[in-house]
Design a protein around this nucleic acid. Structure first.
Lengths: 140, 140
DNA sequence: ATACATGCAAATCTTTTGCAATCAA
DNA sequence: TTGATTGCAAAAGATTTGCATGTAT
């Protein structure tokens, strides 16, 4: 399974690296297709997962039915999710790789390899939107 | 938005409470429909989310494109996810409600309300399956 | 009576896949 | 040459929604 360099792959990589924040696959697709209208969404998906598999870009797993997000950062760190719009933000808290040693699966034979610590909250824009429209119930 | 008691809602509640582990919505639907073949999947989905919203059952948010799982436990605790099959297991590690105080969003106006700590790994069945079939690449 | 709940099918949304054509090495 | 990559459309899988009907209160 060698890797080959293609213009589409470079476009995908460049788009992630230059995208501020945590773009979804569709965000990246839209950026690229605005300049290169013939690129296929499937290609973007394939390249994003290949690039993250190869450690060239970061991947933020989907949470709570959201989309997968990508990251120009490749170092391990924690994220926050807006419970209203699914937006991802970086969290300033040192990454604790040793936490695995303290966690014991309550099922025989389950072995832990990594962890994700997700801070759930609400972003500025969504909070302001809530105020305007009166207090809408926060979806469970 | 009052709540009304219906047989379907009771069936849904009972199925979650008596289900060992962490059933998905479809798991619950299958259990119920085996005895009550006329129940609709949409009703099961609606009741599961209403019951978890009311705190009567626990909800385990979907992670990494998996399904949402439900839980007969309603206390806060941590979970492990099998990266191969998406299975959810309980993790023995005391819940740290104070961690929020140490986490600082790197975006203005994002306010944190809760956290989820997820341990990713591989379950016994999937590990054995890997051995049998030779070493298949673990999907990224 | 009122408005919440149900069942059904259709729709949504993100992501994956089959396949023939194309292109990098 | 040949196997990785692409574009397209269709498929997949989980969940939601519109709507007419049914039912708890």
């Amino acid at each position: 399974m060698d890797r080959r360099n293609t213009v589409q792959k470079e476009l995908t990589y460049d788009a992630v690296i230059s995208y501020p924040g945590h773009p979804s696959a569709d965000d990246i697709y839209r950026v690229i297709s605005s300049k290169h209208s013939t690129i296929s969404k499937a290609t973007v998906y394939r390249n994003l997962s290949q690039l993250s598999e190869d450690g060239k870009i970061g991947k933020v797993e989907s949470f709570a039915s959201g989309e997968t997000h990508y990251d120009h950062r490749t170092d391990k760190h924690y994220h926050g999710y807006c419970k209203k719009c699914g937006k991802v933000v970086d969290i300033d808290l040192s990454y604790d790789g040793k936490i695995l040693e303290k966690a014991f699966p309550m099922e025989d034979g389950f072995s832990i390899t990594s962890h994700e610590l997700i801070f759930v909250g609400i972003c500025k824009e969504c909070r302001e939107k809530e105020k305007e429209n009166g207090t809408e119930g926060i979806k469970n």
